[in-house]
């Protein structure tokens, strides 16, 4: 289980953490410096059982999202006559021979719908997160590294955004924009960049005072080169941690909007609108509400565990344990 985790590709998990790498002389000086920092982080990470568990669950969820067409037993929108029972066409309960997690009110295979719904929910959350984090790195970098009026403008905008009623403004945006997956991504991003920008700015602010930045400047490196070559690599662990820890917020926003009927709209399934559809049949078919919610919960839990573990691994001084 340990060796199959995807975190830290290209790292050598076989190396013990407390001892220096045996073949330091064999490699280039610079490369050893870089790898050992990540190597230490990896060795701390792989001893953290909860973080590994979170990582494995997150991996399974992401893979099933990517491979939905291969993994799902049926077409998520195909309606089966045998999917409904009795005179009143009641959905089949979980555990039936053909449909493992039962069927929904239209006789569609619920497991397939959950897998395809997860594909949409996770894709939307990850896409929104990539946009948000990219914006946050650029704005946080500008604010932290350049300072001055650009810092004032960006940080005042951050304060403004934090002062707005987020959910209401997201509802307003979803009303105005045409219903599509892009709208959902935009609506999540509108507030998604705010908190990471603050964090990255603070990080850059302290990094830029470090001696290696002064050294680079003394050697004649320009601002962009210093930012890209010297600051960004040091910011990378923070970026990775926050990319992970912000996924739950994105998932929750998508689920909430879709539950209100303002996010991902049927017939495209998402975990949020599956819950919405399920609420109409909760007396006869409670699994239609319960399963998508459990999946949302597990997704959030796994990304939180993974994110906390990564943070502790990269920065053991601020350990949460």
């Amino acid at each position: 289980m340990t060796s199959s985790t995807p975190i830290g590709p290209g790292l050598d998990p076989a190396l013990p953490s407390s001892q220096p790498e045996p073949d330091v002389a064999a490699r280039g000086e610079k490369e050893v410096e870089f790898r050992s920092h990540w190597g230490y982080a990896w060795s701390r990470f792989r001893r953290d059982r909860f973080a590994l568990l979170g990582g494995v669950i997150a991996l399974i969820l992401v893979v099933s999202a990517l491979a939905a067409p291969l993994v799902a037993p049926f077409d998520p929108i195909e309606q089966f006559a045998e999917g409904l029972t009795g005179d009143f066409a009641i959905p089949r309960a979980p555990g039936s021979d053909q449909f493992i997690l039962g069927t929904d009110s239209l006789g569609r295979d619920f497991l397939s719908r959950l897998i395809w719904g997860g594909r949409i929910s996770i894709t939307v959350a990850v896409a929104a997160n990539i946009v948000s984090i990219t914006i946050a790195v650029i704005l946080g970098g500008i604010a932290g590294y350049l300072g001055g009026w650009s810092d004032s403008v960006i940080m005042r905008t951050v304060d403004l955004a934090l002062g707005f009623p987020a959910l209401l403004l997201q509802i307003a945006l979803a009303t105005v924009l045409p219903p599509s997956l892009w709208t959902v991504i935009i609506v999540i991003t509108v507030f998604g960049w705010v908190y990471p920008t603050r964090i990255f700015r603070g990080q850059i602010l302290s990094l830029r005072e470090r001696p290696f930045v002064e050294a680079a400047r003394a050697l004649g490196a320009g601002r962009i080169r210093i930012f890209a070559k010297h600051l960004l690599p040091h910011l990378l662990p923070t970026i990775i941690v926050f990319s992970t820890l912000r996924i739950p917020t994105a998932i929750l926003t998508e689920a909430g909007l879709s539950f209100l009927g303002l996010g991902v709209r049927p017939p495209t399934p998402s975990w949020g609108n599956l819950i919405l559809e399920g609420t109409r049949f909760y007396r006869t078919a409670p699994w239609l509400v319960l399963f998508p919610g459990f999946l949302i919960m597990f997704t959030i839990l796994s990304f939180n565990l993974l994110g906390d573990g990564l943070r502790d691994a990269f920065d053991p001084r601020e350990s949460s344990h």
């Binding site: 929750l252 689920a255 539950f259 819950i275 609420t279 909760y282 919960m297 597990f298």
Partner: peptide, 22 residues
Amino acid sequence: ALVALSLPSFWFGLVLLFVFGF
């Protein structure tokens, strides 16, 4: 706490309704 903060409040509300209302 770790499990509780992973709960989507609207879904948790539906579960509470189902259990303690129905």
